[in-house]
């Protein structure tokens, strides 16, 4: 769309391990949470820094979609068409593509 052309979304190269350590420690300090909790928040938010920050602050993702559960991940790996359609309804096709990319990253 014209709006997308005017305001393109840039994706930086993936952060390095040192970057990630800095971000994990920063979030632990900012939200008074332990390493396990902050790490899991990143895993459930596909490694998206802004989404994870928003989730820890408000309990919600900025795009309004829920975070991924173990059952969602298992359904994503299954060949069950009904389960996959339910995932598309729950997360949207774009979010599913992001989840698949993150799991393989």
């Amino acid at each position: 769309s014209q709006l997308d052309e005017d305001f393109p979304t840039f994706t930086f190269p993936p952060a390095t391990t040192e970057d990630a350590k800095y971000v994990l420690q920063s979030f632990m300090k900012e939200f008074s949470l332990d390493l396990l909790t902050v790490t899991q928040a990143f895993l459930k938010n596909n490694g998206d820094v802004e989404a994870t920050w928003n989730f820890l602050k408000t309990g919600s993702r900025p795009d309004g979609f829920p975070i991924w559960t173990r059952k969602d991940d298992l359904d994503l790996q299954s060949r069950d068409q009904i389960a996959r359609e339910e995932l598309i309804r729950k997360f949207g096709a774009a979010n599913i593509a992001l989840r698949i990319a993150f799991q393989g990253s």
């Binding site: 840039f10 994706t11 930086f12 993936p14 391990t17 393989g104």
Partner: peptide, 16 residues
Amino acid sequence: CPVVVVVTSTVIRNAF
């Protein structure tokens, strides 16, 4: 403009 900063699963694992 909107910027998405993403940490890969492998990098999160290494950092953790």
